[in-house]
């Protein structure tokens, strides 16, 4: 059985978890198994939607200690659940929760793990998973040598297909575990599209000359349903919050479309965005290194170009 770990936020299932569900269902089909899901904590309102992604059953372990994410507790509960349900392959979406929990589970179960997977496994000879390495500059094909396997799928890496289906929800009893970590404060960024999951990202750099000009970025992002991001210098001089910084030391993202406005594209920035499927660069410097990594570009003054782009996007989106 393929067991997919489902992450939720504010009572709904995360988009990247639906991707993980579809990926798990595809592996189940490929290997002649069934695909089921596991949720920790309260049951989100859209749990039955998992049926549309190929999941037949959703198991829910609800204990007070699971309301916050303690990697030690989660790994222990997930192992017990995986054993009870006879899971052979466990799938995560490769987000901050998975990065805390999946390695613990791997060590606990002695189950080989590939994190950052970007494709279905090749099972013709062994069980080999393609993953992103060298900060998006290469791929590795990693063979999982153990019978039990764990895969953490990168967000936006797997093309989801849905069909109509229904998933039944089942409570699952697991031993209670007391967390050794206490959570004293939680600050959630609400109302924004999470950068790591966004399929379109609009990003700004020092070329915008100051935070007062960020309207170009936020307005275009609003029209495209995109998340906003920025380069490292912009975060360092506090024009934008640090959680928007993409690059080598910030967040690494892989949206379908990345629009870089006034960013030169230093190699450290590229390391965070080079897995984007389509890259658009708007910069006045024709020698900006970003143009070498771009699919589309305009060499020009963004203060002249951006109002026209925004107007044209409004026109095709039918926004007055």
């Amino acid at each position: 059985m393929v067991l997919v770990f489902i992450d939720q936020n504010e009572g709904t299932i995360k988009k990247s978890s639906f991707e993980a569900a579809a990926y798990g269902a595809a592996i189940a089909q490929q290997t002649g198994k069934t695909a089921e899901a596991i949720l920790l904590g309260d049951t989100p309102a859209d749990a039955d939607q998992l049926g549309n992604y190929g999941i037949s059953k959703v198991h829910v372990v609800n204990q007070a200690s699971l309301k916050t994410m303690d990697a030690q507790v989660y790994a222990q509960v997930l192992q017990e659940a995986a054993d009870t349900l006879h899971a052979e392959i466990i799938i995560f979406s490769n987000n901050t929760t998975a990065k805390a929990v999946a390695p613990r589970l791997s060590a606990r179960m002695k189950a080989g793990m590939v994190s950052g997977a970007i494709a279905l496994p090749d099972t013709t000879n062994g069980f080999t998973v393609k993953k992103s390495v060298f900060s998006g500059k290469a791929f590795a094909h990693v063979n999982i040598l153990t019978d039990k396997k764990i895969i953490a799928l990168n967000p936006n890496a797997f093309a989801v297909t849905t069909s109509s289906g229904s998933a039944s929800v089942h409570p699952l009893e697991c031993s209670a575990v007391q967390p050794a970590v206490s959570v004293t404060q939680v600050n959630k960024v609400v109302g924004e599209i999470p950068l790591s999951e966004a399929s379109v990202v609009v990003s700004g750099g020092r070329g915008l000359k100051g935070p007062e000009n960020w309207g170009f970025v936020t307005e275009l992002a609003g029209l495209l349903g995109a998340a906003t991001a920025c380069s490292r210098p912009v975060a360092d001089i506090h024009w934008r919050p640090h959680h928007e910084h993409v690059g080598q030391t910030g967040l690494a993202i892989a949206p379908n479309l990345y629009i870089a406005i006034g960013i030169s594209g230093a190699i450290q920035h590229l390391a965070g965005v080079n897995r984007s499927k389509t890259i658009v660069v708007i910069n006045k410097d024709p020698e900006a290194p970003f143009f070498k990594a771009a699919d589309y570009g305009i060499v020009g003054d963004l203060f002249e170009v951006m109002p026209k782009i925004i107007a044209e996007v409004k026109r095709i989106k039918g926004v007055a």
Binding site: M113, K137, A140, H141, V142, G297, I298
Partner: peptide
């Protein structure tokens, strides 16, 4: 070991940027 790297692969070269006049 629980895993082994079978091989590496480089991404296909980008076709090159399509520039649009400013």
């Amino acid at each position: 070991a629980l895993t082994s790297i079978e091989r590496f692969e480089l991404p296909p070269a980008k076709a090159g940027v399509k520039l649009v006049p400013a």
